[in-house]
Amino acid sequence: MSSTVFAPWDEPEAKPLIRFQNVTKKFGEFTAIDNLSLDIYEREFFALLGPSGCGKTTMMRMLAGFEAPTSGRIELAGKDIGKVPPNKRAVNMMFQSYALFPHLTVWDNIAFGLRREGMETNALKARVEEMLRLTRLERFAKRKPHQISGGQRQRVALARSLAKAPTLLLLDEPLGALDAKLRQDTQFELMDIQEKTGTTFVIVTHDQEEAMTVATRIAVMDEGQLMQVATPDRIYETPSSVYVADFIGDVNIIEGRTTPTDEGQIRIDWAEGQPPLFATSSQRFDAGQTGYLAIRPEKVVISAEHPETADNVLRGKVHDIAYLGNLSTYHVELANGTIIKAQSANTRRIARRSFTWEDDVWLSWTATAGVLLAR
């Protein structure tokens, strides 16, 4: 296999599998999707991420054919699917509730859709066996849904959805009902299955960690609009707005007035009695403009002594400590009452932790560690 990175969205000649073109969806007076355009490519594991009510489920229901756009068009493989009924689309949807038939065995649940299509017996048998292997359910083929665990039921629903070899599989909060440990395991299974089948997956989730784990690209949504569409690392490292920075992961946001310096950095004056901060930016900032410096806690170094060579240095007291096993997040209160979070890995036993409550500490980070945003 070639080691080229999978990134069709960067190839000008690549044709998207799914195209939303200026799609608007209204329910009465309420606009659920607002003039939205988006391309999704074949073999992608694409995540629609956002808070409740942001429009992500409406997008999915329009792809499935349960809702029609008020205006604009949706294409699948170059064809307008606006008028195509759900059962005639090469699209399958896996619901949060799994919707398995309780009276049927795992085997028959998976075979259900194929039987309805009238698939020939030998082909049907081979396809069901293949799906059982893919989802590692061979041992459970004869059991009923109530005789297997939640995670296994989840895999049965997945096997049933994939049995008909859809071009596109839609997953609506598919791991919502699973506990944390199982969710993690299942995320990796989903990625594995998606890679093996080459099916395009579109997942709806409000869980940022889940989206960051499974997706090739993420669309962060808010109030029916796309805030940013990018790979997980771009969304985390270079968010396009305060909203995206704040929605993904933990972040400190410091608002201040910007002044470009001769050294190509931008100085941020942000609080009375506090030293100015320095950042770099590819965006242009004018003197006196409001800027928002987004800095991740893991990029902030916490130390007992004043650091010698750092672009940004602040002094404060340890106000709170969140111990997360592999790392600790220190909430440090500055003299003006601002709280800045700094994170460090726990390489030593907790009893030997360097800092504790009320300790005086220094926080520092480089000019390139944060992202300066205009809004």
Rank of each mutant, 00 (worst) to 15 (best):
P12G: 02
R19W: 01
T24K: 02
F27W: 15
G28D: 15
F30C: 06
A32N: 08
L36W: 02
S37P: 08
S37N: 11
E44N: 12
L48D: 02
L49W: 00
G55A: 12
T57Y: 00
T57D: 09
A64M: 09
F66Y: 12
E67D: 13
S71V: 09
G72M: 10
R73G: 00
R73W: 02
I74K: 10
K83F: 01
V84M: 13
F112K: 08
A126P: 00
V128D: 05
V128P: 01
E130N: 11
L132G: 12
R136C: 10
L137P: 11
F140C: 04
Q154P: 12
R155V: 05
A165Q: 13
T167E: 13
L168Y: 12
L170E: 05
G176M: 02
A177H: 12
Q184T: 09
Q184D: 08
Q184V: 14
T186F: 07
Q187N: 06
M191A: 10
T197Y: 02
F201A: 11
Q208L: 07
A219E: 11
M221A: 11
G224Y: 03
A230P: 05
D233N: 09
P239N: 14
S240Q: 10
E255T: 14
R257W: 03
T259S: 14
I266H: 04
P276M: 03
Q283S: 09
F285Q: 09
Q289W: 06
R296L: 15
R296W: 07
E298W: 01
E298V: 03
E305L: 12
L324R: 13
L334H: 03
A335I: 04
I339A: 01
Q343A: 09
A345G: 07
T347K: 10
T347W: 15
R352H: 12
W357E: 05
V361G: 12
W362S: 04
S364T: 15
T368H: 14
L372D: 04
R375G: 12
